[in-house]
Design a protein around this nucleic acid. Structure first.
Length: 432
DNA sequence: TCTGGGGTCCTAGGACCC
DNA sequence: TCTGGGGTCCTAGGACCC
């Protein structure tokens, strides 16, 4: 059996833990640069606020409504998530963290056969709530797709007390008959439209199709979903702890025009990619930089340019990855456009203990220095905050008046961000 | 004026090999 | 007039997830 533990409205719930005044109100959390809505409270959903709505349209689309809009505070959400996951890890032997707000727990039959899993799940949800303030819903079933279905029932109906179990044929049929096809994990918008057009409205209807029809129309991924809904466990998650590509990209608060402005941003993105590589003990063989204009501005000339650079040998140090990203930028940059978004992708990822030397690579002594330097910077940044130490190329030219140089990251707008309640001593809550 | 970010998997089709 | 057969690798694009 699998238990899927899913945080309810994760970002909004994180905010509410430290700001209970938001309880019961319509609350939305915004993307970087306060661009669009990425999370909504149940009240905001009930009001009809769609996910992805541009923030500037909120007052015109919902005039006169009381809506609390917050910038995203990923530092807070990441820390809260880690607290939730640590409780789950202590509660089940095998845990797969699927995203910031979800984890699958494997419940071995030998251990859980004799206990009441429903009561176990309810107690786990209550414990997470009591220890962290985070409301979670739990779905328990023989396959991951069915566990997802169960968790949605646990979320939707308070009568389940935060835990729904699908553990026999009767319950499976009943649940699937009530479950819209488009809400099934693995059935996206496109497939849902086609299935609806063919008269398939519920998950149960879908399971009544025959296997070859499903595979022909939706490839083996669709067939896997079909099997899982029948109760056959066939989606494995214990693969790929190492990512195969790593990407860091952002939109800019203002459009950029010069190569040098883009270079600051891309240096910052490349250093972030290099850091992520080191975190998972990997090195990359290719570095791609891309820049693109604002697709919403039909009045401006559009372009999206990219260039990939093959490194002479796998690398993960800041100077090597940033250097490659900047040469990729120089290879693709064109004058005359207004750039709105850019990013760096590293690929061809290999474990860092399989380091191969190449006579084309930089001298071994220098490479070693770069790696030691990056490791030291990681340690300093871990202790003193993310931006304590970074390459000068990721900083803007100092302001002549103050002599201060700003980084790319503090140019991102988040005018309505809550404090770093759990990670910065200056932001700790005061009880008066 | 203002519209997010980061991933994975699968397939078709082209290039290339013998 | 008639123009093989079988394989691998790579890439772009689509679909999906949170």
């Amino acid at each position: 059996m699998y238990a899927l533990v899913d945080c309810d409205n994760c970002y909004v719930s994180c905010e509410r833990v430290f700001n209970p005044a938001l309880e019961g109100k319509a609350v939305v959390v915004l993307s970087n640069n306060d661009g669009c809505v990425v999370a909504r409270s149940p009240e905001a959903k009930a009001m009809g606020i769609p996910e992805g709505l541009p923030f500037y349209q909120l007052p015109t689309r919902f005039p006169g409504k009381e809506i609390h809009a917050l910038s995203s505070n990923y530092t807070l959400y990441g820390d809260m998530s880690a607290r939730v996951m640590s409780i789950l890890r202590a509660s089940a032997p095998d845990i797969f963290i699927y995203s910031i707000d979800e984890a699958f727990l494997t419940l071995p039959e030998s251990k859980y056969i004799d206990i009441d899993v429903k009561a176990w799940g309810e107690a786990l949800a209550a414990k997470v709530r009591r220890w962290t303030g985070m409301p979670v819903s739990i779905g328990i079933a023989p396959t991951k797709t069915l566990a997802k279905v169960a968790s949605k029932f646990a979320k939707r109906y308070p009568g389940y007390h935060k835990c729904c179990v699908i553990d026999n044929e009767e319950r499976r049929q009943k649940a699937l008959a009530l479950f819209p096809i488009g809400d099934v994990w693995g059935i996206g918008h496109r497939s849902a439209l086609r299935l609806e057009a063919a008269g398939i409205h519920t998950a149960l209807d879908f399971t009544h199709l025959d296997a070859t029809t499903v595979q022909r129309a939706m490839t083996v991924t669709g067939l896997r979903t079909w099997q899982e809904l029948h109760g056959r466990d066939c989606i494995s998650l214990d693969h790929l702890p190492r990512k195969q590509t790593i990407c860091t990209s952002r939109s800019f608060p203002k459009m950029l025009t010069t190569r040098d402005e883009l270079a600051v941003a891309l240096s910052s993105f490349a250093a972030r990619c290099a850091f992520k590589l080191r975190q998972q003990h990997s090195m990359a063989q290719y570095v791609t930089a891309f820049i693109s204009t604002n697709p919403f501005r039909d009045d401006l000339e559009q372009s999206c340019l990219a260039h990939s650079v093959a490194l002479p040998a796998p690398a993960s140090s800041d100077p090597e990855i940033v250097g490659a990203a900047l040469s990729a930028l120089d290879a693709c940059f064109r004058q005359g456009f207004r750039w709105k978004r850019a990013g760096v992708v590293v690929s061809g990822i290999v474990p860092d203990d399989e380091l191969q030397t190449s006579f084309l690579d930089i001298p071994a002594e220098l490479k070693k220095k770069f790696m030691e330097m990056s490791a030291a910077a990681d340690e300093i940044n871990r202790h003193h905050g993310d931006e304590s130490l970074q390459l000068a190329s990721a900083m803007h030219t100092p302001d002549p008046a103050t002599g201060k140089a700003t980084t790319f990251r503090n140019s991102i707008l988040h005018a309505r961000r809550s404090p770093f309640y759990t990670t910065d001593i200056r932001d700790i809550i005061e009880v008066l």
